[in-house]
Amino acid sequence: MASTDSIISIKDLTKSFGRRKALHNINLEIKRGEFIAVFGPNGAGKTTLLKIISSIIEPSVGTVIINKIDIKKDPSGIRKMLGAISHETYLYHELTARENLVFFSHMYNMDKSIIDERVDRLLKSVDLFKRADERVASFSRGMKQRLSIARALLHQPEILLMDEPYTGLDQHAAGKFELVLLNAGKGKDIETSDCAEVVTRIMITHNIERAFELCDRMLIMDMGNIVFDRKKKDIESVKQFREMYLSIIEKDTDAEGTDNIRAL
């Protein structure tokens, strides 16, 4: 049984694509409001794990329960709770910034009476209000990424899934984005102190320093396994974590190596 304060409970999750196993027997409990960073080399299974949590792909074996809902039984119910930010912007280039946000507001069944206000507020908070009526095609990569962040936060999700969310963001925008992430963990809406749900955040990244600063818990995945799972407070320093990570990557996780890391 999942522990009562878990918002995400993953049991014996395996995902195969043909004969290739992308995830091997993953077990993971994530508490409400936690901020988790997921690291790992390319092909480690990080994105597959996120796609399963977001109910875009189904597990081959095992269960994923989110907020007491099994993703196989009610994927649509799961998606209502999720916001996703990726290196892909999920934006339509021929629509304006505002049109993109309004379109996705409708997709998330948002109340029509609040859409305009919410869209304006989000556009202001990502510094795109003045360019709200310009086509996304004319935006720089960083502007598109900022708009993509606004899109993910439109419906005030309970869980934020992020796959390389810093793509294209400059220092200023990255700093602002981090503030949003930290506020979300305290139940504060973007930029304001509006009452909102405490947001659980899972972020795939290669930026160890930034993640170490922000996150509560660090995971390392390799070859479809979670080979490291520790709270930040139990890790001495970012340097120690980096060394651990590099040793895992260098070993390329043969079975013995994985056991050693787990024993750390």
Binding site: S76, K80, E88, T89, Y90, L91, Y92, E94, Y108
Partner: peptide, 18 residues
């Protein structure tokens, strides 16, 4: 083609729509 660009189709698939 437009849906495949920038992952728009995935954006739609992430939405709670049938």
């Amino acid at each position: 083609a437009a849906e495949m660009e920038n992952g728009c189709l995935e954006g739609l698939k992430l939405s709670p729509i049938d």
